[in-house]
């Protein structure tokens, strides 16, 4: 097994782990962290497979994609954190209610 494939599989495991955490944890901060872990997993897959496609010289395109992806992830996390603060201020809890409020 090549090291690139190993990294890619690690990326997929991170993605799955994040997905699991996103579903089981109720606290919104944990959910946001879970999404970030999933994102890192995808970035790891992109970089690892980029190293494999062209042999000796790594392919720069996936790296450009990862940089774009990181920018997107940071903005999304910032928005999510701001929303968590507002949700906590409005409902008193940093969790989503099970049933929609009336």
């Amino acid at each position: 097994m090549s090291s690139a494939l190993l990294y890619a599989l690690a990326g997929v495991s991170l993605f799955t782990l994040g997905l699991y955490a996103l579903i089981v944890h109720a606290h919104l901060l944990r959910k946001i962290l879970a999404i970030n872990v999933m994102g890192s997993g995808v970035f790891l897959v992109l970089v690892a497979l980029g190293g494999r496609t062209t042999g000796a010289e790594p392919d720069p395109v996936p790296h450009a994609m990862v940089i774009t992806g990181i920018v997107v992830a940071i903005s999304a996390t910032a928005l999510a954190l701001a929303l968590v603060l507002r949700v906590q201020a409005a409902t008193g809890r940093a969790e989503l209610p099970e049933e929609p409020l009336e």
Binding site: R86, P97, L101
Partner: peptide, 8 residues
């Protein structure tokens, strides 16, 4: 609260 939780 409704709109914020829906947005989240």
């Amino acid at each position: 609260a409704n709109a914020l939780t829906a947005a989240m």
